[in-house]
Design a binder for these strands. Structure first.
Lengths: 180, 180
DNA sequence: GGTTGCATGTAAATGGTTACATGATTGT
DNA sequence: ACAATCATGTAACCATTTACATGCAACC
């Protein structure tokens, strides 16, 4: 799924500028399952405009730089729907955290504790933010994915909290090769 | 975290050829939180060899092509430990599945049902495979991550199973823009 | 006879990140 | 003063994926 489709998806929910789409992938819900940077969003938006899949309105603003607000066209909506009908590519996860924990025996125990604590704090922050917004006025799909996210983050935070001590205990009794 | 570090991590567990490392990232536990393809593994292994971080032994085999078995050197172990001490980059998830579900209102309901069913089946397959191998003889970190994986996949499968019907019901009562 | 598994590697193409360039405004 | 937020864009660079190249053995 390329950045063009991602932008189309974002614009299917509401008109937005490139800057706002980026924010949606940073703080918004999209960020939890996909990424996109300025360097990929702006070219994608221009390409989409050239293909007639989005329309662009220049908005002059006071005390702010000008904005280009994009809105999806009927043809854009069609293209998006078609792209969504394709069999989704398998999920791609890259987690340095998990990889590092997997090799915990190569690290000093306090460092492992730190890593886990930081991750628990991160999940709790996400959950606080996710639970603050009520999902009732959103489309069913968005509410569904939101619920899944909350469930998964909660399960992860709970697991880490419950088994943190076990891991550190097990490490204490293990043959280890620790960095200085 | 680049492919070189990934290979070092794989070799820290056991000696292996490039082909075997690839398999570990495909079927093995590593695959759940990182990816690596031939095109990145072989060059990484050669670079690692040139830097003296791994050693290579050519193994002639009967009825099989020759193998290059790599083993991590003390310096390689040191480099790996140092890399693991760096603050881990934030997780990067890209899930076309979740993105598609998020926009479920653009799809026909039966298609959404299919997508969810396929995902539940995938989780169940993974869980069957993960539960078949006992984690007691593995290092504590690997067992910990294994437990987290099982917990998360189970939670996801349960959520999808429990809320599948809710989503389809909610979609039936929604204003929708469905592809042909 | 075709596909899968074993086994290594290269080259082209892709796609995306990072950094740069610009500039006003608001907050510390 | 300095950093951050708002706002758009380009270009160099990077890493990885994909496809290609080769070849034998086993299985269906």
């Amino acid at each position: 799924m390329d950045t063009k489709t991602l932008c189309l998806g974002a614009l299917s929910r509401a008109d937005a500028s490139g800057y706002e789409i980026k924010k949606a992938f940073e703080d918004g819900p999209l960020g939890h399952f996909h990424a996109a940077s300025f360097g990929s969003i702006y070219p994608a938006l221009n390409a989409l405009d050239a293909e007639g899949l989005v329309a662009c309105t220049e908005m002059a603003q006071e005390k702010r730089p000008d904005k280009k607000v994009y809105s999806i066209t009927p043809r854009g909506r069609d293209t998006l729907a078609r792209a969504l009908m394709a069999p989704p590519a398998p999920d791609r996860v890259r987690s340095d955290f998990l990889f590092t924990l997997f090799l915990a025996h190569l690290l000093p125990a306090p460092r492992v504790g730190e890593l886990i604590d930081a991750r628990i704090a991160w999940y709790r922050d996400c959950l606080k933010q996710m639970e603050s917004c009520d999902p009732t006025d959103r489309p069913a799909g968005a509410a569904f994915v939101h619920g899944l996210g909350v469930t998964l983050y909660r399960a992860a935070a709970d697991y880490l909290t419950a088994h943190r001590a076990d891991l550190l205990d097990a490490m204490a009794g293990e043959d280890r090769m620790v960095a200085e």
